[in-house]
């Protein structure tokens, strides 16, 4: 039963930590750019404020537009609670493997894009078109890089994949390095960060994700923003799980989980610092250079796969 408790704890933690880490990231970026920044808790304040605000719907918004925030938030939260962050073997982690996880995020994106088209503004359609196009290119690259690990572990279950990484002796595996680079590239694209998309922009012609949210207000907007923060945390945790899982708690003991929490937080901070430095030093890519970027990620992941067969299995 204690694993059930830790499962709930972990899911809550993922949801509650997401805005804090988003705040941490934006503060870090602000500091790097010689600004003071609004503080780590600012996203939480925003969400709280938005929850209290009135919702205004466009006149002919359909039920799709109204229910999409709930679907997007629920699907993302469901995906987040499946990923093992602290405890290796949680009850929910078996309900969806990596492929189902990607598909859950796909479901969220599907509805998000539909909501973008529901009002019938040019911006919404533009955002939907771009988001779906780039997601379609990113998804194979992401699955390919996951496959490199899945084929090694003979499993797509995150728990099994992590324990496979934990139990095999530490070797230099070029294939995994390739998969990691591909995964990082895709994660940046999927989470809508610079250089693919800029979450803080409101310049119409450059935005992708934000263009679909333009018509949202109040609690709907809060849920959408929260979901995208959870998504960032989810991808970070996924990268940690797949590539640097050492430190995750194998048994459901209180001390072990606490220790795992500290280590997880440290790893997250390292990833976010890297992301902040990257976002500060890079400019946004031109829109039609994004396919090339994602294609590179795909080629890298595929090379990783070939190398896995060549160097690690075939030898």
């Amino acid at each position: 039963m204690s694993s059930m408790f830790f499962q709930c704890l972990q899911a809550m933690l993922m949801l509650l930590m997401a805005p804090v880490l988003a705040g941490f990231l934006s503060t870090l970026k602000a500091r790097l750019q010689n600004r003071h920044g609004a503080g780590i808790l600012q996203p939480w304040r925003d969400i709280r404020k938005l929850f209290g605000k009135e919702v205004v719907l466009a006149e002919h918004a359909s039920w799709i537009f109204r229910f999409t925030p709930y679907i997007v938030f629920t699907a993302t939260a469901m995906a987040a609670s499946v990923v093992p962050a602290l405890l290796l073997d949680t009850p929910l982690s078996l309900t969806a493997d990596v492929i189902a996880l990607v598909a859950l995020l796909g479901l969220a994106r599907f509805f998000l894009a539909l909501a973008g088209m529901d009002i019938g503004t040019a911006f919404g359609g533009m955002g939907a078109s771009r988001e779906m196009t780039f997601a379609a290119l990113a998804e194979p690259a992401m699955l390919m890089s996951v496959f490199v690990l899945a084929i090694g572990a003979h499993s797509t279950n995150l728990t099994t994949m992590i324990s496979h990484t934990l139990t095999t002796p530490l070797l230099i595996q070029p294939s995994i390095a390739f998969a990691l680079v591909a995964m990082l590239m895709v994660a940046i694209a999927e989470a809508g960060r610079i250089p693919i998309d800029n979450p803080t922009t409101h310049l119409e012609l450059t935005m992708i994700h934000e263009a679909m949210l333009l018509e949202y207000s109040g609690r709907h907007l809060a849920l959408m923003e929260w979901a995208s923060m959870v998504k960032l945390l989810l991808f970070s945790t996924l990268i940690i799980d797949l590539f640097i899982p050492w430190g995750i708690s194998v048994e459901s003991s209180f001390i072990g989980v606490l220790l795992a929490f500290v280590i997880w937080l440290l790893k997250l901070i390292v990833l976010l610092v890297a992301l902040a430095v990257l976002e500060t030093s890079l400019a946004k890519l031109r829109l039609f250079e994004v396919p090339q970027y994602l294609g590179t990620a795909f080629v890298l992941a595929f090379l990783g796969l070939i190398l896995h067969y060549m160097l690690e299995v075939g030898a």
Partner: peptide, 28 residues
């Protein structure tokens, strides 16, 4: 695995296509 990746690409493009279908026909 390459065919699996093509399957992933086809699935994701199909999602794109059906966002287009549903969005253009039924929404807006």
């Amino acid at each position: 695995p390459f065919s699996a990746a093509m399957l992933a690409l086809a699935g994701a493009l199909a999602a794109t296509c059906f966002v287009k279908v549903f969005g253009v026909v039924f929404l807006g």
